[in-house]
């Protein structure tokens, strides 16, 4: 009995370690590949030997425009995430506080739009953006990505607001504060914890978006990371070292963020998943 238990524990630890190694292998191989010249035919498992070789990173930055893509991603992600939080919080407030039938229908419609897969509306959405002149612009992709993440944001904010007592708002209202004042002075400051969740969750989605960005951002001056890597990779499929270097450079910002905000990331993702 005790031996059986021990064996079981050993097996489960083995399983965990194996899986952790499997998850680290891609990062390790990307690193060894990125640090070796194309002429180096040694196994991907072997670390590079000799002098530090950084040409692949130079190629990724010069030809792949990876740094430019990171800047574009930072612009798109930060603006879109702020908008998702602000517009989502604004919308959630009346929907959480006033349960009239109109508001219930509005809430249902907003949540229902989660079910629309982005690619299912590719044709009409792209042609709409084309007419508006939003293809290959920051604002075009930002509007699309904000709209895509809004339902989740509204849902998370509304769930949180329902747990906040109304006493403060009512007191402010009795003192003569108007709707906007109540929202910006009283409600918004209370939403900090859920804002962290919404920002991390939607921020990661927006940062990683490929399926919309690849069609909406086709020129190098506006292209974000995911489509930039996709197109660089299809051009450089023979130069894998450069592709690996580009991949590592492109994932660096999010890895850094994860390193410092790990707890918030996991908590945020979980909150989003449970809805």
């Amino acid at each position: 009995m005790l031996i059986g238990h021990r064996l079981f524990r050993l097996a489960s630890v083995g399983f965990l370690l194996t899986f952790a190694v499997i998850q680290l292998v891609p990062f390790y191989v990307a690193l060894t590949t990125a640090l070796k010249p194309k002429s180096d035919l040694s196994s991907q498992w072997m670390p590079p030997t000799g002098r530090l070789y950084l040409d692949n990173f130079r190629i990724a930055i010069e030809q792949g425009g990876i740094l430019r893509a990171i800047v574009n991603s930072l612009v798109v992600t930060s603006v879109a995430t702020v908008l998702v939080c602000l517009i989502g919080a604004l919308a959630a407030y009346p929907l959480a506080r006033r349960g009239t039938w109109v508001n219930r229908v509005v809430m249902l419609l907003m949540l229902g739009s989660i079910m629309v897969p982005p690619l299912s509306v590719l044709v009409p959405l792209y042609s709409l953006m084309n007419q508006l002149g939003g293809v290959n612009t920051y604002w075009g992709i930002i509007l699309i990505l904000v709209t895509g993440q809004l339902p989740l944001s509204v849902f998370l904010y509304a769930a949180f607001i329902r747990t906040v007592p109304t006493a403060l708002e009512e007191a402010a209202r009795v003192d003569g504060a108007g709707t906007f004042r109540v929202f910006f002075r009283i409600v918004l400051p209370l939403l900090k914890p859920v804002t962290a969740t919404v920002a991390i969750l939607t921020g990661v989605f927006i940062w990683n978006d490929y399926q919309m960005s690849v069609y909406m951002l086709t020129t190098q001056d506006v292209r974000t990371i995911a489509p930039a890597i996709g197109s660089f990779f299809s051009q450089q499929s023979s130069n894998l070292g450069a592709a690996a270097a580009a991949s590592l450079t492109a994932m660096a910002p999010i890895l850094l963020a994860y390193l410092f905000l790990q707890r918030h990331f996991i908590k945020g993702m979980l909150a989003g998943a449970e809805k």
Binding site: L109, P124, F183
Partner: peptide, 24 residues
Amino acid sequence: LVNVLYLPALALLAMFTAYPLVNG
């Protein structure tokens, strides 16, 4: 008046989700 707060969200969803869906 509180309900106007959800108009921006509703406008975006109408324009970039509902309209494309119907148009599609």
